[in-house]
Design a protein around this nucleic acid. Structure first.
Lengths: 150, 150
DNA sequence: ACGGAAAACTTGACTGATTCCAGAACGGGG
DNA sequence: CCCCGTTCTGGAATCAGTCAAGTTTTCCGT
């Protein structure tokens, strides 16, 4: 994972001041892909025990605005963050436990950017979420497809 | 839009009792595609002035579980509901005002259901959200790229 | 290094959407 | 028409996220 000097460099490149909370949060997100805010706060506090939750929220917003992080929020989930930015990738989400994995774009660099009917919208991004069940959860419940009420 | 007897029929078909709040909520969602909960509550109260917000929440959940409604929740938005279910369609969402429009699947009946790498997940649905700016907002703000999302 | 302006952080209360709870009211099969 | 189980009510709780005011830190020029 990125070392501290790399993180400093990343912050400077987007004209953000290098502060301890920012470095700690950035490191935490790099170490915990797809983590939710609470997880990030706890991970950040292992390096910097007294950061306020407000500081973490502020930093996450600043880093997201600066495109160092990407915010993802599948339906029914709280906000999650990932450090992989600038490429075009999507996510598989487990309906059972909420686990998220990255999925490279299947079609090319700008895959589904062409809806059949765009209603006059100027579309700049196509976000794809694959819903399913992760291996762990499908092992726990024999055959999810056949699990019916009753 | 669907008449009341149709709504009764729909409820009976999924083994749900026909109650005034259910009929009123179902009618409200049919009349207001992609409406958020608050809008649905107000629309429901035009037909049934004394329903509680709790009743509306409960009904929305029951109807969603019964697949009469579909819940959608683009990142950063509150829950919204639509009555169009059972087909495979996606949405365009305006980054500026949150407006949502339906988009038919561009590729076929099960379009993007094939991620390049599924990490062992059993995928059953691909949800696509096209992000952009609606005609109204792009007319109102000359350069949408400079508009910060609040 | 040093000072100070500007940016960032801390604290603590608050908002708003949604859910939980316990008891009252109601729908509809028999 | 009656009764049981389902649904509705109203209030309180929860939880992520936000606001505001005051203090601390960073970093630029000297």
């Amino acid at each position: 994972m990125a070392v501290e000097s790399d993180l400093h460099q990343m912050l400077r490149e987007v004209a953000l001041r290098v502060t301890r909370p920012r470095v700690a949060v950035l490191h935490a997100v790099h170490s915990h892909p797809h983590a939710d805010t609470d997880t990030i706060i706890r991970a950040t506090r292992r390096a910097l025990p007294d950061v306020s939750h407000q500081a973490v929220y502020d930093v996450l917003r600043a880093l997201t605005d600066a495109r160092l992080l990407r915010r993802i929020q599948p339906a029914g989930s709280v906000a999650r963050y990932e450090a992989r930015v600038g490429d075009n990738h999507h996510h598989v989400v487990c309906r059972s436990c909420g686990a998220i994995e990255d999925v490279d774009c299947a079609v090319g660099e700008a895959p589904c950017l062409h809806p059949s009917e765009r209603h006059g919208f100027s579309v700049d991004e196509a976000e794809v979420v694959y819903w399913g069940v992760c291996p762990t959860c499908s092992a726990a419940t024999p055959d999810p497809a056949t699990v019916r009420k009753g």
